[in-house]
Structures are given as C-alpha cells and as structure tokens.
Design a protein around this nucleic acid. Structure first.
Lengths: 250, 250
DNA sequence: CAGTGGTCTAGACCACTAT
DNA sequence: TAGTGGTCTAGACCACTGA
C-alpha cells in the first residue's frame, strides 16, 4: 500500500489532478472494474491526507470524463463505457486541410446581394424583402476540388464585402461581420446523397457519385434564422470519424 | 438593482445553480455581450452574500456550457458561441426508432461461429484461429427495411447465443456477454456511399441509391480490437443532425 | 440508525496580469 | 503593487440509502 506515494502535495501539478489520474490509472489497468465502488470520499481524504473538497474535485473530473458516476447515499462507482452514442465530428474544413499540410484554395464562383425569394422565405421564415449576401464557392486542396458550398447570409450592414472574407467558409463569422445579429446557435443536417449534374461538373466527379450533403441554418439570440448554407462534399474523399468510450488523453 | 432578489438562499434549488442561471439569462438576453467581463468573483460573492467557492461553482457550470471562459489574473468573460464544430449525433438505432413510436423489427439473416479469415485478420490484427461470432441482420421499422448490419465479435466464452441478443444491434453489449474482454473504446467511420447489388436487394432500394456506410471497431483496455461491424443505412430515410452553440436547456 | 454523497462557508496562499 | 482567478483547507449541515 504505497498509495500515498502517488500524490505529491508540493508538486506544481494540482492535487485534484494527480488524484484523478491515480484513479483513472486504476480503472484503465483493471484494478477497479465497472460497477465497483471507489472508497468513500472521507476515506480517500484521510488516506492521502487531503481535504474532502479536493477529493470531490478529483472525482468530478472523472465524472465529467464518464469514467465514474455518483449516487447520493450509496457511493461512487466505476462506469461501464458507453459505446453506442455515435458522435461524428467534422472539424472546420479549413483547419482540417491545413492540418494535413495541404494547400487550401477557395474559388468564388458567384457573389452578390439578393432579396429573399420564395424558396429562401420558406426556409428561413423571413420577410419578403430581406436582403441577403449570396455566394457560391469551391474548396480545393492541392488542386483537387473537394467541396462546393452555397450560402445565404442576412445582410443588414452596408459594409463592403471583402473577397478574403468569403474564402473562409465559416458562416458564423460572416454573419457576425455583415449583420447586426449575434449568431448563437446552429443546426446542421447531414445526408448521404449523390451528385447532380451541376455538382458533378463543379467537383469533377461523375453524376450520381456519392456525396455528403450538409445543410446549415444559423440562428440569433431569439431563435430567428439569420443564415443558411448547403455544402456538398465528395464522398470518395471525405469520412467522418467518431471515437468514444474511455479514450486516452494523458 | 434587485440582483439579490434573484437568489433564494433557502430554496431547495442549490445557490450555485440559481446563480449560474442568473448569469445565463443575462447573457441570453444580451445584457452581457460576448467579450464583456463578469464581475470579479469576490464582488459577486459579497453582492449576493454568498461564499466565493459557491460563485466559482456557478461559473464552472457556465464554463462547461461554453458560455464563458476564465483567464487567470484577468477575469471571466462571455464567450463567443462556437458554431463551426460539426458534431453529428446518431443515437442508438433502437432508441431512435422507439422514440418515434415505430415498431422495430430485427431479422437475423445469418448467424454462426467462424474463424478469422484473411480479411478479418487484416482488419483486426488477430491471430489466425481466433473464433468469432458472425451475423447479419436487417432492421426495419413498421415493415420498411432501413438498415443492414454485418458484425463480427470475438467469441471466447462458450455461452450459447440467444436469438434475442442478436436483435439488439449493440456491439458492445454482445462483446461484454460473449467475450472475456471489456469493451472500453470504439471507433466509427462514416462514409457516403451507394448501395451495391446485395445491399440494394436486402434493403429494397435501387442499386446506386445513396446510403450511409458506418464501420465500427471496438477495442478492449489494451487497445486490442475485439469486434468489427459494418452498417448500411438508407440515405433517403436517415439524416444526422447537429445542434451547437448556446442551445437552450432550461 | 450509521454511512454516503451534495452543498456551503470563511478563510488561506498561490500564480498570473496589468500598471 | 493591486487585482484577478486557481487551489486548498477544515469544518458544517443536509438529503438520500440501506440495514
């Protein structure tokens, strides 16, 4: 029982962090198995000679990581990893490309100010005459065209539009710059689809080739839609990956 | 200035929770804008007549929600909502269908014990003679076939396989039941694809119709793969939705 | 009832930031 | 140097659980 040696109270590393890592290691090594209880908080505190609040801080880290759960009046128990929550992360396109060391290129096909038409009115529920910044861009990495994006952004300020702004395909930034609205939430819908003729031509793939279709709507503080976009990603060049359970993060 | 009225110290609702909601409301109503500072912790504590630790607990809730961030030595500031992290959640297929009030049906097409072939050996890196439980199922809702799944699960126990077990298409449960390994992490890769002839026939769609293809690998504590599965979802019946930013959760 | 986790206090010292 | 957030303590009382 050299538990106490695992915690250095004079270290620059916080005690709660050392303690959390100590239990995390026990769990990862199988010394504490799912369903088993951790020692009571007071026992941990006295065993390591630290305060109960510090123990609780450590446990709250493990709770946040999904490795343990607490039950009032009963104790703290090792959780069973949940692997059935499918969470796919698609990092920002720009960042993703740059991370791979590729040369990102954004080509603006069209950019203009438009008034809401029937289609947009239905999608966003805006008044008929609302003005929008509309543009279409193609994203390419090392000369290969990968994505085609069509976007509408509410346009309330009179600020001129800089070409460089359009090359960062982040809807929320553009909304922040060109409207008085503050974008606070966003809904995206991802579908599997096949390229139509226009998309196939623009992306240099054959019609009916598989693509990801992402529709994004951006909302302000009041839940009012203030931007809409559609993105087509080449299915043969793009994958979404999801890691869950107790991923390592040491 | 009736701030103090917003906190009821005798309520059953914890003070830190009331305080967090108080600031959340200020932020949502635009009284505190992105970039602006919250009052110093000590000032909040004395203004509401509570302890600084309780204030910190409240702020940590807001930090976890992504609504504020702290900077040591400077202060606590309202965050700008991040809307560019695309995170698609696909809840467990069973739960999703049941939530919609549909009648879920799982049909087992095939189920047997197999030894690892070259393909599986390459994918999972296991020894040649490892035995696997192999099965294929079709998932349908109200008579309509929606998904087709092929799964391999390491089979170390001699337990008989119950038909009902196979009807819950959760890989991790099956691994837990039929192997000595503890599944702790999972990797899933989602692709846009088109149905091949076999898949089209089984799902009752036309060949080359768009589908989601999800490959899942399950790992044990040591990072050793202990299960693999491939799922085909009808693209015309399945969408993934992502909400981010400051979503409401009152 | 004893034992557990949940909340809260009133201090303390520290590291970091700005002036 | 003054002001901020980060960590930690040694208590306290509460709500919930199970024997």
């Amino acid at each position: 029982m050299q538990d106490e040696m695992s915690i250095d109270k004079n270290s620059v590393i916080p005690i709660y962090y050392q303690l959390a890592k100590y239990f995390e290691k026990q769990i990862r090594h199988g010394e504490l198995k799912p369903g088993e209880a951790l020692p009571p908080e007071m026992e941990i505190a006295s065993r390591f000679g630290i305060s109960r609040m510090t123990v609780r801080r450590a446990i709250s880290e493990l709770v946040a990581a999904g490795m343990v759960y607490t039950q009032q009046g009963k104790g703290t128990f090792v959780a069973r990893p949940r692997l059935d929550n499918v969470v796919f992360e698609l990092s920002n396109f720009n960042e993703e490309i740059k991370k791979r060391g590729l040369n990102l290129q954004a080509t603006i096909l069209e950019a203009k100010i438009v008034k809401a038409d029937e289609n947009l009115k239905a999608k966003l529920g805006v008044e008929f005459n609302t003005r929008f910044l509309f543009f279409r861009i193609v994203l390419a990495a090392d000369g290969e065209r990968l994505a085609y994006e069509t976007k509408y952004i509410i346009y309330t300020k009179q600020k001129p539009i800089l070409e460089s702004e359009l090359k960062d395909p982040s809807l929320s930034n553009l909304v922040a710059i060109h409207s008085d609205c503050l974008p606070v939430s966003s809904k995206k819908v991802l579908q599997a689809s096949v390229a139509n003729k226009e998309e196939a031509l623009i992306l240099g793939i054959s019609p009916n080739a598989p693509v990801f279709l992402i529709e994004q709507t951006i909302y302000d503080l009041n839940g009012k839609p203030i931007g809409w976009g559609k993105s087509i990603y080449r299915g043969d060049r793009y994958k979404l990956t999801s890691y869950d359970g107790w991923y390592a993060k040491d």
